[in-house]
Design a binder for these strands. Structure first.
Lengths: 338, 338
DNA sequence: ACTTTCAATGTAAGCGCTTACATATTTAAT
DNA sequence: ATTAAATATGTAAGCGCTTACATTGAAAGT
């Protein structure tokens, strides 16, 4: 007996006493074949556990029923929640998803994009390192349906689904204007578009009396953790009622945790406002006040739009800005703390 | 100009004034072609941003450089951490990973497995719903290199990388023997092999005086949350110094969070011991005492072994049991609580 | 100068499928 | 019964690559 996986449609055809075309037809389920022969073929397929070769199918022209998804990090709940949203939609439509992570590296992103293109996915969902990255240009050039996630793109020809980051920044500023503190420290990580937008909304709204300190390059949970001793030794937060606006919940959680360990009182001494509202944020050491944008929704909407685009490529490119809201939890509360 | 993506090796060959074979040779980089023609071809490829069709390449026999990964849940940090480990290894070897989630559904798992097989991945990594699931049997039958994750399989012909779950259960029991409590409640979710093993190690070691209550089917974070009021109203934990052994950190975190909200004192009134040590566990409302097994390591080792298996399919099937250790944090501390 | 080698390239046969078109078989219409 | 129409199936031409084998041309050996 032939090794499973090396069996071809021709083998099945022979055993069933029909042509390959007929087998192909029962496989595709669409074309009509006499019920009796269909079951005969099906039986043979079952008997030998034959599995058609997707590569050959794809090459020969049948749709791959696969879409590619590129996110920036696997280890970041932010992106995982997006992927979950995508997955939940694709599953219903019987599409499968090819998920990979760029690790915030443009080159890697481009490689992944190429690879997706060359494996003939029907569409791609990408959370690009930069809205103007080569990957996005390549995708556009390629003519394949695609939707950008977590970025807004100028070009009206590209579809995107993003949180309204400007608005998110404004929300935080409004909160701070309402609940004044003596000092504000901004903590950001990757210099991503979404972050700049958050900041610009923030600064445009914030009382001009504030002169926030800005610390950059704090990217991971651990970075946040490690930052705290620095803040403490430099006396940045010890003496003054400070608010930390951290543009990434992962980092915010890391910082919060360490602050608690170091005995800093939250929210009395220091208040913390994060961004994203990842699932974990509600359950961290001190439940996090943060700007909430449903990542699952971003993923879901992006997937739905992509599927539409695949069905009708001439369709207008949808552009979504999901409205964020500020979720007040314990790390920064509404009553002015003095 | 032809649409990007529809350009073929023949087009390139024509423009470069060579045969398709030569183009193919410069693409594969292995075979020798005169430097001058190589650069000429490369230039044309560059100029037209030609991307070879992976389907065709695969069909024609070149390795796909792709491995399939099936996990049970996307929304569970446990599995994501495994995937991260896998990804970190594959990246170096220039393999790409096709990640998908079975959602604990055997049928879906089987479908995914079939799909991987039919797309000619070079190997697969699977965290099966059940060590004896049809998927595993199919994989074995197919002859494709694969390694099972998070399960130990009897069959010496299948490779696996799993935590030593028995030992993990023992660790918890030993802790409880050392730090006696008045009552133990066991909380489990999916009836997965790993859980049974944890329990059997646990029961075999636990002082026989204990008569634990066992609550099943608590699967998610939210389930954990919702369970608390029940425990409270039934007076299961209000009056007695209780320990909750929760075989899944997600659930443990959900429970902990809710207990804190309900004003239950942890670890004085109730202590909680989880399992897995997902990243979040150290930073939850009450940092979780839990059995730690490095999921990243499981992923890494599994990926390395798979790569080896791909290189040498006759190789003996490795079988790893990662040793767990108990990490004491605040939700259950070593000093007997009375 | 002539054969032998070897490097560089071309030719063409697949890889396993789908599908337009041709052919055979059945059913309906007259 | 005879022909037209409809249905079921077969034939074979690709899909875009890789690669064994054939061919060419030049360097090397005598």
């Amino acid at each position: 007996m032939k090794q499973l996986g090396s069996m071809t449609i021709a083998d099945i055809a022979k055993k069933a006493g029909v042509s390959t075309a007929t087998v192909s037809r029962v496989l595709s389920e669409s074309d009509k074949v006499k019920p009796s022969t269909r079951t005969r073929v099906l039986d043979i397929i079952e008997e030998y556990s034959y599995i058609p070769n997707q590569l050959a199918q794809g090459l020969a022209g049948s749709p791959t029923k696969t879409i590619g998804v590129i996110i920036d990090e696997l280890s970041n709940h932010f992106f995982i929640e997006i992927a979950e949203g995508v997955d939940s939609i694709l599953q219903n439509e019987n599409y499968s998803m090819q998920l990979s992570s760029s690790r915030w590296i443009g080159d890697r992103e481009l490689r992944l994009t190429r690879s997706l293109l060359s494996s003939r996915v029907e569409g791609v969902l990408i959370a690009p390192v930069d809205p103007d990255s080569p990957s996005v240009r390549l995708l556009k050039k390629s003519g394949i349906p695609f939707v950008v996630m977590n970025c807004s793109v100028e070009d009206p020809d590209v579809a995107y689904v993003s949180g309204n980051n400007r608005r998110g920044g404004e929300l935080v500023a409004e909160f701070l204007n309402r609940n004044p503190r003596e000092q504000i420290i901004l903590i950001t990580g990757f210099p991503h578009q979404s972050v700049s937008e958050r900041l610009s909304g923030f600064f445009d709204t914030l009382d001009s009396a504030y002169k926030p300190i800005h610390i950059r390059g704090v990217k991971t949970f651990e970075d946040g953790h490690d930052l705290v001793p620095l803040l403490l030794t430099r006396n940045l937060i010890a003496k003054i009622k400070t608010t930390l606006f951290v543009t990434n919940d992962n980092v915010a959680i890391g910082i919060t945790d360490r602050l608690v360990r170091e005995g800093v009182a939250i929210p009395d001494q220091v208040t913390i406002i994060g961004y994203d509202d990842i699932r974990m944020s509600a359950f961290s050491r001190v439940p996090l006040t943060t700007v909430s944008q449903s990542m699952r929704d971003i993923g879901r909407i992006a997937a739905m739009e992509l599927l539409d685009l695949i069905k009708d490529p001439k369709k207008e490119r949808p552009r979504h800005n999901i409205e964020p809201r500020l979720v007040i939890r314990e790390s920064a509360v509404e009553a002015p703390s003095r």
